[in-house]
């Protein structure tokens, strides 16, 4: 492989951590610690391979609601990330500017245009940064994806449209979602470069993302990457895939597990038991830290219901806030917030 052994090991560790966190998130949902979660099991290679390729000094990622692995790869504060699934704050509690990772976005395809706009800003600033828009096979049907690709094509913008084609948009399979053979095929219509890659091969994802980054940095414009992968778990902790797909299909993808595949390659390249054990130990430590952080996470202060609607709030909103916080039926704690805050 072109990617060196140290990088492959780094990618492996990130995938193992992501897998462990993903499993723990479903456990925490069952235990009532978090109300809901969108599992990404099976998509670790697509997320780690792309996220780990980004340069945090100049690039910017625009996630949806299923990019926990990207957050792991980019070093986003994971307790702040899971605060979204904890139900503390929709966009998460991490700092999006410092993390180079936009707030979690629940609107399917909504953030793809923002990545295009950020890339326009980067081009106007004569920078070499690149934005990376995450979206899925379902989102590819939304007009915003097409508008973003067209704008990017017209202006040669430094953006990567990274489609994780995970086979299913909740219950609708890709063949009922995507006409014309693939999402990547659409790139030709907008004059963009495109690659369909094995999204379960983390090294291939990492290298394809690096090629697209290099193309964008050198003025070559946007790339559509379609990473073919599989959502092994349900759409969310409320979903029941048994209603729309077969166990046989799920089992056939289990044979292509991205972590097992890289483990075999690393072992062949000389990685020993100690390496794999340390990866598992690191993952367990991260899981423990995140779990503890979420168990201990308190509700946001009530003032935050009102605080961030505007940077420069309207008088009526402030009146609503003050009137509500000073009401007798709230605890003294909140009443004193209203008085002193």
């Amino acid at each position: 492989m072109k990617t060196d052994d140290d990088t492959a090991r780094r990618l492996y560790r990130l995938m193992v951590t992501t897998r462990a966190l993903d499993a723990e998130a479903t456990v925490m949902q069952r235990q009532g610690i978090i109300p809901g979660y969108a599992p990404l099991k099976g998509q670790e290679a697509a997320q780690i391979g792309s996220g780990a390729a980004l340069d945090l000094a100049r690039d910017f990622a625009f996630p949806t609601y299923r990019e926990m692995g990207v957050a792991v790869a980019m070093g986003v504060d994971l307790i702040g990330y899971f605060a979204s699934h904890h139900g503390s704050w929709h966009g998460g509690l991490y700092d999006p500017l410092a993390s180079r990772f936009a707030p979690i976005n629940a609107v399917v395809a909504g953030s793809v245009l923002h990545a295009m706009g950020w890339a326009k800003g980067e081009k106007l600033s004569h920078g070499t940064g690149v934005s990376l828009a995450y979206f899925g096979d379902g989102a590819s049907s939304q007009g915003d994806v097409h508008e973003a690709m067209n704008f990017a094509g017209v202006d040669d913008l430094p953006v990567i449209f990274f489609c994780q084609n995970n086979g299913w948009a909740i219950s609708l399979p890709t063949e009922r979602q995507v006409a014309g053979g693939s999402v990547a095929a659409r790139a030709a219509g907008y004059g963009l470069a495109a690659e369909v890659i094995d999204g379960n091969d983390v090294v291939e994802v990492f290298e394809a993302t690096n090629r697209a980054l290099q193309r964008a940095r050198s003025g070559g414009g946007a790339t559509v990457i379609e990473a073919m992968t599989y959502r092994v778990g349900p759409h969310s902790t409320s979903d029941d895939p048994g209603r729309y797909r077969s166990i046989g299909e799920e089992q056939s993808w289990a044979l292509l597990d991205p972590i097992d595949r890289l483990a075999q390659q690393l072992r062949a390249a000389g990685a020993d038991d100690a390496f794999f054990e340390s990866a598992r130990t690191d993952a367990r430590e991260t899981v423990e830290t995140v779990r503890t952080g979420l168990v201990d996470m308190t509700d946001r202060p009530l003032t935050e219901l009102f605080d961030f609607v505007f940077t420069n709030p309207t008088p009526r909103l402030l009146e609503q806030r003050d009137a509500y916080l000073s009401n007798a039926y709230l605890s003294n704690e909140y009443a004193s917030e209203a008085t002193h805050g």
Binding site: F60, L97, A102, G110, V112, L113, H114, A115, M116, G117, W118, A119, K120, G121, E122, L124, S125, S131, G143, D144, E147, A148, N150, F151, V154
Partner: peptide, 21 residues
């Protein structure tokens, strides 16, 4: 000038604002 797509004009504005414009 932008291409003729209003959703993209607003979405682009959001990305530009995140960039600091």
């Amino acid at each position: 000038d932008t291409p003729l797509a209003e959703s993209a004009i607003i979405g682009m504005s959001i990305g530009l604002a995140i960039h600091g414009f």
